[in-house]
Simulated scan of single mutants.
Amino acid sequence: MKTIEIINDDLAQGGFTSGNNGIWTRNGPFDPPTEDYTALSRRLDIPLSRFIRPYQASGDNVKIVTAEHGGSGVIKDNELKKADGLVTAEKGVILSVIAADCVPVYLIARSAGVIGLLHCGWRSAAGGLLHNGIAAMKELGASPADIQLIIGPHICADCYEMGAEVREEYAKFFSENELEALFTVRDKRLYLSLSKALQLKAEAEGILQEKISAVNECTCHDKSYHSYRRGDRGRQNLAYLMMKSCNSHQ
């Protein structure tokens, strides 16, 4: 098991964890919470009724959530289906997404008091997920220039081998110069940097370069995490983010 702290200040708290078992998804809509969620709830001293997890689909859909969604995907079924991003302006609710090589993206807009959490696979990193996440935050009063973006642990460019068809897909969204920065060739094999793709996307959305950072940990290299590319099936890591109930923003 491995857990790291992504952010913990007067406004926000967020982390990334493999859990004890790496099982965050229940088999049925009325099943009890998984042991990993229960353990995380105890560790953070926050009830499961305040956790929210969407049913992800590796797409571009983002949902604005409130306390009314509390427990969704964790202790009860929910309507947050085919969503890979959550945004909220409410304190004390925990946004969470599962990932097993894909990129968790943490978004914090301090002056507006808005946060977001995204699950970016290679399609979402090239497509509109980040744009839609920022649009949802803007709907709640945030400005792109105010947003801090943190790229969480994910499969690194040294491990993420892709086919030529992926580069062709990325050519629809990035310039040739950008593609040169995103893709590298080693031993006639093509590798993709999801982190660089998201940094370019973020800057294009108006997020300031100095407010973009990345956690330098690879889920495939580090066997403490679960990795789809390394062969883990049915086990994922969990990213989570919340605005604290008691902080200087109040």
Results as ranks from 00 to 15, higher is better:
Gln236Asp: 14
Cys246Arg: 12
Leu194Val: 09
Pro54Cys: 06
Gly73Leu: 02
Arg186His: 15
Asp9Gln: 00
Glu169Asp: 11
Glu139Gln: 13
Leu107Trp: 13
Gln56Gly: 04
Gln13Ser: 09
Ser193Asn: 05
Ala67Gly: 09
Glu161Arg: 13
Asp146Thr: 11
Ile7Trp: 05
Thr219Arg: 03
Leu117Arg: 00
His119Ala: 10
Ser72Phe: 14
Thr3Gln: 12
Lys188Pro: 00
Ile212Pro: 02
Ser227Ile: 01
Gly73Glu: 00
Ala164Val: 15
Asn177His: 11
Leu48His: 05
Ser58Val: 12
Thr17Glu: 01
Val97Trp: 01
Gly231Ile: 02
Gly121His: 14
Leu130Lys: 05
Lys91Met: 00
Ala89Ser: 14
Ile155Asp: 02
Ser245Asn: 15
Ala125Pro: 09
Ala89Gln: 12
Ser193Ala: 08
Ser111Phe: 09
Tyr55His: 08
Ser195Asn: 10
Ile108Arg: 10
Tyr228Trp: 14
Ser49Ile: 08
Ala57Arg: 08
Gln13Asp: 07
Val87Cys: 04
His226Gln: 11
Cys220Pro: 04
Leu190Tyr: 07
Arg50Gly: 01
Ile155Tyr: 06
Gly92Trp: 11
Ala214Pro: 05
Val166Cys: 01
Gln199Phe: 04
Leu86Cys: 04
Arg186Gln: 15
Arg186Lys: 15
Asp232Leu: 00
Ser227Asp: 10
Asn78Glu: 10
Ser111Tyr: 06
Glu79Gly: 10
Ile134Glu: 03
Gly19Arg: 01
His131Lys: 14
Ser245Phe: 00
Ile207Val: 15
Phe183Val: 00
Ile94Gly: 02
Thr38Gln: 13
Val74His: 02
Leu238Ser: 02
Leu179Tyr: 00
His249Gly: 12
Asp31Gly: 06
Glu217Thr: 12
Val65Gly: 03
Ala157Asp: 15
Gly15Ser: 07
Ala171Gln: 11
Trp122Asp: 11
Ile134Gln: 00
Ile23Phe: 03
Ala239Trp: 10
Gly15Gln: 03
Asp101Ile: 07
Glu5Lys: 14
Ala12Cys: 07
Leu80Tyr: 06
